[in-house]
């Protein structure tokens, strides 16, 4: 990409955006705990909202980081966010009810280490590098945690690795002294779970592309913050549609349908608004018109 990078002056300050993003992400993930409290899975979609909030914040972070002339680095920023976030998220889910908080802390530490390595050891010398990579790692971890909670209805490790239980019946006659008794043990099935079935890989890439796409698509001299952020919301809800479809496996028809409808409506609204904003920013909006020559020396 040889485009000259001139990030627009944000109308909303980045710190304010970060606060909103982080708070909504954590609170949204916790709201999926209503599933456990009420015993139904219909609150799973809050995980998706949390993930979208994290992506919304993350795309603004990418804009800050990449305005330091990282042209082709825009897509890679999405990848490193989710690469570091994935580790934090999987470790974080082992902490039960504290999982979202622990995930945030672990991701921030991981991001700081990666940022320090990039900035001080590889000598990339970008002033916002450490802070940005910390933010991006948290964004990656919270997006994956949010979408995982949305797909399975829970943010706890066991729910993510165990898809179902199968019963194994063994004859224990000899051990029990001749009487015909059976040992019935429940064997967990891993292959049809979120992590065992590798559906988490889909979430990883859905998030990584949704994170980098808004700024990558909107970069240029006339980039404007509201349009980029609206695209971030649109990409987030678009990813949420796919997660909603996958969630039918784990949380059943009713809860899956609720998630799907919410994400479809939200995506449609954001996408339509994004097209309107593009229309506002574009030089001209033409249908089947010839090239307007402005004076290339051909």
């Amino acid at each position: 990409m040889t485009a000259k990078m001139e990030a627009s002056e944000g109308k909303m300050p980045h710190n304010k955006l970060m606060t909103y993003g982080l708070v909504i992400a954590v609170v949204g993930t916790y709201l999926t705990y209503l599933n456990v409290l009420t015993g139904v899975a219909v609150f799973s979609f809050f995980g998706g909202i949390a993930a979208v909030a994290a992506l919304w914040w993350g795309s603004d972070t990418i804009k800050h980081l990449c305005s330091y002339g990282l042209g082709t680095g825009v897509p890679s920023a999405g990848m490193i966010a989710f690469g570091s976030g994935a580790i934090a998220m999987i470790v974080g889910t082992k902490f039960g009810i504290a999982s979202p908080i622990v995930t945030v802390i672990l991701a921030a530490i991981l991001g700081a280490v990666i940022g320090y390595t990039a900035n001080n050891i590889i000598n990339m010398n970008i002033p916002v590098m450490i802070m940005s990579l910390m933010e991006l790692a948290v964004v990656g971890a919270m997006t994956m945690l949010g979408f995982a909670a949305m797909a399975t209805g829970s943010f706890e490790f066991n729910q993510l690795i165990i898809g179902s239980m199968s019963l194994s019946v063994e004859s224990a006659g000899v051990a029990a002294g001749g009487a015909q008794t059976f040992l019935v043990t429940a064997i967990p099935q891993y292959g049809n779970s979120l992590i065992g079935g590798a559906a988490l890989a889909v979430i990883f890439f859905l998030g990584a592309l949704a994170l980098q796409h808004p700024f990558n698509a909107c970069l240029g001299p006339n980039e404007s913050q509201d349009r980029t952020l609206m695209l971030a919301l649109s990409c987030g809800f678009l990813s949420m549609i796919v997660v909603a479809i996958i969630s039918f496996v784990f949380i059943g028809l009713l809860a899956g349908t609720i998630s799907l409808i919410i994400s479809l409506i939200a995506w449609f609204y954001c996408y339509k608004t994004y097209i309107d904003l593009s229309k506002r920013d574009a030089y001209a909006w033409l249908d089947s018109k010839p090239i307007i020559e402005v004076g290339g020396d051909q």
Partner: peptide, 11 residues
């Protein structure tokens, strides 16, 4: 849409 709208400066 994003890329093209951001090139408005260059007509």
């Amino acid at each position: 849409l994003g890329r093209t709208a951001s090139l408005a400066k260059f007509k």
